[in-house]
């Protein structure tokens, strides 16, 4: 098998060139008015042309904002293991409809399964959390972890919504602390709009790029269209692509693996 290095950083344009993005999303499929759903396929790019593979799927539903300015975000993220096992994260989050979609409270579960059957109850993880002022409190099986956080706290899942609303408004960089997967606290991140990195690619539109940089992370780049839809999020070589066919693609991939 030829192993041709990708050689340059991944952008939407480069994904097309290396055939990582074989089916382009259809804009009509994605409404931007809440409540709406988004589905992403997670591709893992090993740095070789034509050698990306499916790693998982991210689904979320953004509910309408209530009178208090809060909204619910339901999230299911699945990561698929080689040995037919699957790791599933499920979160029900209440977020504030503000600049960064600050989390207010949430419940998170994590479980491992093989073909839909839980493999070990001891590996089931449950967490509830809330943010009051600058106090973050996470309760895991009755053990409470409390810490002071920066006032601008964001979550990786909530950022998808925040960026959609931020489109065209962000001027100066935003400093924030990140609560990744509601379980890893990563302070001192900076979100920027990278005006110079627009590129004409998708249906002759300019795509807008936001970057998130900070300790404990490789740079994230989020690419959005003019309607604020996050078309893809790239974390060096992990790529989340907006993909209406993600469930079918994921199911087919799992079937393919299970036959090995």
């Amino acid at each position: 098998m030829d192993r041709i290095p990708v050689s340059t950083p991944l952008t939407p344009q480069r994904l097309v060139e290396i055939n990582a993005w074989k089916t382009l999303p259809t804009l009509d499929d994605w409404d931007s008015e809440p409540p709406y759903e988004r589905i992403y396929t997670a591709y893992l790019q090993h740095g070789y042309v034509n050698q990306e593979r499916i790693g998982g799927m991210l689904w979320y539903k953004r509910h309408a904002t209530d009178s208090q300015g809060h909204f619910k975000l339901e999230v299911v993220e699945s990561r698929f293991g080689i040995a037919n096992n699957e790791h599933t994260l499920k979160a029900d989050m209440i977020l504030q409809e503000d600049t960064l979609s600050r989390p207010i409270s949430w419940e998170l579960s994590s479980e491992f399964s093989v073909k839909g059957e839980i493999i070990d109850e001891r590996l089931r993880y449950l967490e509830s959390g809330q943010l009051k002022g600058d106090q973050l409190k996470i309760n895991t099986k009755g053990v409470i972890m409390q810490r002071k956080v920066g006032k601008s706290l964001a979550t990786n899942w909530g950022l998808f919504d925040a960026l959609a609303r931020m489109q065209g408004k962000l001027q100066a960089p935003i400093e924030l602390d990140l609560l990744q997967d509601l379980s890893l606290y990563k302070p001192d991140q900076t979100l920027r709009l990278r005006k110079k990195r627009h590129q004409s690619w998708f249906e002759n539109q300019d795509l807008h790029c936001f970057s998130l940089l900070g300790a404990g992370n490789l740079p994230w780049e989020y690419w959005l269209d003019d309607q604020g839809r996050v078309l893809c999020a790239i974390n060096s070589f992990n790529i989340w692509l907006l993909d209406a066919e993600a469930p079918q693609r994921f199911a087919a991939f799992k079937e393919q693996i299970s036959r090995r």
């Binding site: 893992l44 090993h46 593979r53 080689i82």
Partner: peptide, 13 residues
């Protein structure tokens, strides 16, 4: 073996 992962990048697994 509890979870062997997707065989891909560690940043994912």
């Amino acid at each position: 073996v509890v979870f062997c992962g997707p065989g891909g990048p560690g940043s994912f697994a």
